[in-house]
Design a protein around this nucleic acid. Structure first.
Lengths: 192, 192
DNA sequence: GCTAACTGCTACATTCAAGTGACAGTTAGC
DNA sequence: GCTAACTGTCACTTGAATGTAGCAGTTAGC
């Protein structure tokens, strides 16, 4: 019995370590090249290609596991930010810091997930939660109300990627500071 | 003799049309799936796979031609914006509108161009021109001077993609308006 | 209308990744 | 220490994409 990604599974400890290494290496490789081969991922993780196939029945299953790891981390960040309850300014900053951390841990991009239904559904759910939060932030006067539909949400998503890629020297909190300041100046209502 | 992409080439008119269709279909498909096959691109262009191979010796050559088409369009947009001479506010807006148009015409992404040396060199040259422009804009008081290195340039590049993807109902000029306003609020020095 | 240019089609060789099977060797955990 | 779990390696099939060849048919452009 071991713990992987927060779940208890029947697996030997060394096998669980290998599994996590494969997922992490997979996320890293797939982020730069979405068509990375299983052989490349296995090599990056320092295990044999055959070992990957013992844990995942197919390439699709490995991808799904990587995406799931990212989605779980996002879910945790959203919960921790309390987007639906906390004061909007506080929730925004906490959310930004959490997602920057997720982006650095699981850099893989979810953009091309037309395939898997469950994954897309979860992703859409998260986007809806953030959009609801942005609506609340607009009602409470944090954001401007005269923006094109979807602009505030899309901008926030882009800035989160930007902070992840372009501010590698800053820790997640500092990167979130820069990001949130630029964001609120860009689409916020009043200057503080 | 015919004109393709502004160049005069020895080619029958129908062949030139086919060539442009292939390039355009290639850019469209490669934008959504960088590993799109030659067969898929040929099918999308409505020609036989063999026809593509008659014009391009290899997949790499086709990719290079697509990237070159995009780079040529970017070069034209930069020249038209007169980044090194025109008033910064005017140049910024003209550049934004031009790049939004380029992004819509040649949506293919240049990110993963570690391979081809000439293409990367041209891309780096353009980035340097824009960075020089942003330095000038900072000196002349349009942009804030207290931002992390590279932040203003990276933000502008992201916003250009964002405007292309998220404002499909607006024409290039209107999308550039929204983009530039958000940009100047976000990293500009004074509010107008 | 004639010719050279161009295209579509069928077929083929080659390479590469996906996925599977069997077996021998190693190691965690009792 | 013993056993079950786990791993690495060799070997194989399958499928898909790349790139090439020849031939028959069509069409632009003089």
């Amino acid at each position: 019995m071991c713990r992987v990604d927060g779940y208890t599974v029947a697996m030997r400890a060394d096998a669980a370590r290998n599994l996590e290494t494969v997922l992490s290496a997979g996320a890293r490789l797939l982020a730069t090249d979405p068509s990375a081969s299983i052989a490349a991922i296995a090599a990056a993780a320092g295990v044999d290609r055959r070992t990957v196939y013992r844990r995942f029945a197919s390439r699709e299953e490995l991808l799904a596991a990587v995406y799931k790891a990212r989605l779980d981390a996002i879910e945790q960040a959203i919960d921790a930010a309390r987007l639906d309850r906390a004061p909007v300014a506080v929730a925004l900053h906490r959310y930004a810091e959490g997602i920057v951390t997720v982006n650095r841990t699981w850099p893989v991009e979810l953009g091309r997930m037309r395939a898997d239904e469950t994954i897309r559904a979860r992703r859409d759910g998260f986007i809806e939660q953030v959009d609801a939060f942005l609506r609340r932030a607009t009602e409470e006067g944090l954001l401007r109300a005269d923006l094109p539909a979807g602009w505030a949400g899309a901008l926030l998503r882009q800035l989160l990627h930007l902070a992840t890629d372009e501010l590698p020297d800053l820790d997640a909190g500092q990167a979130a500071d820069v990001l949130v300041e630029t964001y609120l100046r860009g689409v916020g209502r009043d200057r503080t």
